[in-house]
Design a protein around this nucleic acid. Structure first.
Lengths: 239, 239
DNA sequence: CTTAATGGTGCCAAAATTTGGCACCTTTGT
DNA sequence: ACAAAGGTGCCAAATTTTGGCACCATTAAG
């Protein structure tokens, strides 16, 4: 969460909720009161009109008439939206998915061509099933926050991914694989990847993937990639 | 001079001067070569298309055709996207939903304020449950394509909706109700509405709602509203 | 072939910025 | 008087940014 992201979140929250307070915002974005006050000052500096009332019953309120900015979405953001819509379609809610799709199409049109190319490649590797697999989902875990970004980064740049995996019996192994596809069989998500150590394709339940605890040669990792996209290039089959 | 200011300056310089080099830019803004290269990467990530040619006589050039066009989305489109993301969040796929949310926030920012007000009102009437109801879903039907648009139209303009409804026993009734909320208990979607004939609130499973076969006074209906949003205003409780 | 110019990447320590905590002030409604 | 709210100044700790360096790949000129 960069400064900029946090400030975006503040604006979003104020847009949605109307009047709010510094304490509320601080709790919302997980920052201190002091930081929020600094952000508010920065946002005012950037042109946002934010009314404030001191005293009991006071608070902050964004004047929504004030600023209009062009949205600039990143590839993972659009990809996440696409996944949302696609999985809703898979759940059978077609009419709504179609409407959302129309909106997405417009967004895609506004993407620069190279981003669009990335997006198409990501879409090509995404499979969404309609029927839930007949398996026990009582111990369905939480997916790690950075997994989608890490997948996108590694897949597009043809890098390997490193992570720790717990199989159905709870045995933890450390993996280094080449990501090839994402398979969604609601509510289970799978990563399909080539495991060069085992010389074969493997499915990994994404809720069982964790960031690697001990990364050898961690100095090779860009700091923002949590799942250890490696610098070693991958021989992908498709062009 | 913040990072952002510097990156803006780079874009301005490239817009003005056409082809340039990293060294030139570095000298221009008083930063190192390394920093400029990092900025270029960030700008590309943000959606700017910047061509580059290596080798003697090479350089950088901003593709000015790739100027971002603001996608024009309608309220129902954004609403459908929001539902997609919200239902994915309800399904427990938080990290992905958060990413999608960030994208949506940017889209919301670009909406004109009156649309944003509409959107907020729609959001206020949307409830998404996390646990599926313990009911038989073997006969889950298809939701009609225009139902969401009709709901949005009728709700925002405080009009009545007309439709045919089949209850659990298959008995068909013709309804004329005031829509108040949408309740999603995956995979079942409900319309919550006031039924003035029966003088009470009713839940309608949305997959059992069908367009009315015989609509009296159909000349009053806007053509695109399939479900017969009536011109009679509704007394909504909230402002 | 050699060389110079150019974009690009990885790494690391130094520099700069951001952050959280604290004390304290002002305003406002009960 | 008091509690709840916004706002400011300060400082050490945490985090991010930066510059410098080495090095790679590509390209054109000599």
């Amino acid at each position: 969460m960069t400064t900029r992201d946090r400030q975006d979140a503040l604006i979003r929250h104020m847009r949605r909720n109307g009047t709010t307070t510094v304490a509320t915002l601080a709790h919302q974005v997980g920052a201190s009161r002091r930081t929020i006050l600094r952000d508010i000052a920065a946002l005012r500096d950037a042109g946002f009109v934010i009314d404030s009332e001191p005293g009991r019953g006071g608070g902050l309120a964004l004047d929504t008439r004030s600023v209009q900015t062009t949205p600039r979405l990143t590839v993972p953001e659009v990809f996440a939206l696409l996944i949302s819509v696609a999985s809703m379609r898979a759940a059978g809610n077609l009419p709504f998915a179609n409407l959302a799709d129309a909106g997405l199409a417009k967004i895609e049109k506004a993407l620069p061509s190279d981003k669009l190319r990335d997006l198409r490649r990501l879409l090509d590797c995404l499979y969404i099933g309609t029927l839930a697999p007949q398996i026990d989902i009582s111990n369905l875990g939480q997916m790690s926050p950075n997994l989608l970004s890490a997948f996108e980064h590694a897949f597009l740049k043809r890098l390997q991914m490193r992570f720790d995996y717990s199989d159905a019996k709870g045995a933890r192994t450390s993996r280094r694989v080449e990501p090839h596809a994402m398979l969604i069989l609601p509510p289970i998500w799978y990563l399909v990847a080539w495991d060069p150590m085992r010389n074969g394709f493997r499915h990994f339940r994404m809720d069982r993937i964790r960031a690697p605890e001990h990364v050898e040669g961690s100095s090779f990792l860009p700091r923002h990639v949590t799942f250890g996209a490696d610098i070693r290039p991958v021989q992908h089959p498709q062009g």
